[in-house]
Amino acid sequence: MTNKLFDKEQVIEMINAGESLILAGDENVLKELPAGAWIAGTIPYFMDKEGGVSSCTSIFVTQLPKCVLGSSVKVYDTKSVENIYRDGPEHGFGVVIIPASSKTHSSFALDSHKYEDFASKPLIGWISGVLLEDLGKISPKVFDGTTKQIIEDGAVVLNVELPDNKIADIEIVNLFEHKDGDTITFPKNGFNAKEAFINGEKMNFADYLSENNIDLKLPLVADMYGAMINTSFQSINEDEKQVDFYAPVFEGVNYKIAAQTEDYVKTFTKNIPDGVSENLFFSCNCILNYLYAELEGKKTKDLTGPITFGEIAYQLLNQTLAYVTIEDV
């Protein structure tokens, strides 16, 4: 299974040969591709064979393996995205890309667990982004290559059908743990919070973070039955006394501030199971891991893929490496 960077001409050849592809690249280079059986999201950061790299001219390509029975592209808007799990193939999996900061991103982040058939079929994917210098100037996008439609608010999905003797197994690698420290809960769901309960005591959350010198590079971690789910800090708005997040916090969930990780690359290497790359179909890692762990030029074992503004493994994640392998059964 191919997961690596190619130049535009090579990708055009693959598309014209009729291959089904999942692509990641800068908006301008993706716009130059011909119509074909592909989906894409904008991002100029990648984990390639030689390590983390930024490029506005190369395109990261994931080719479907030979065992795949068929694939089809589906596009959703803010409303219809609620059908994303229901519409997945009976035997297979879906790969979804959603533009960062779009209404669909917000809707999926807040409500996916209420969608029909939530998590009943494997869904992996990512949130598209832009060059960090272009934040706020250029909007992240996704592409439906079958029509060359460019989407600023919506979701594009490649549904992949597998034969009966294969399954898709989605896993995550999270450097952070839900262990010691204060238990934090929030009174309502949202991408920001003014108030929180710290060990049951109501406080302004911005004040709590400041008074306790919390390093905002460390996410909030929730333990969802053994799956460690991060919510990353975006910023503290001191004027509003409000904390902004890259994913929503949820009422009723117990969060803890993650413990400091001594060496990101070593911890990644330790937590990625041996032999994963043999059956790896796709992986993606978070832009915050790329930045905070200074992954440019460094490798995370053999896992390659786009560096993203959010990861999807059944639901939205932050600061996490998500991957899917195709296994024999």
Binding site: H113, A119, S120, E171, Y225, G226, A227, F250, Y314
Partner: peptide, 20 residues
């Protein structure tokens, strides 16, 4: 003990729903 990521995430959500 639960092994499959999908089961963990769904079960985590269902337990929250029950607690509410």
């Amino acid at each position: 003990n639960i092994e499959f990521l999908g089961t963990k995430i769904l079960l985590g959500r269902l337990i929250l729903q029950y607690q509410g």
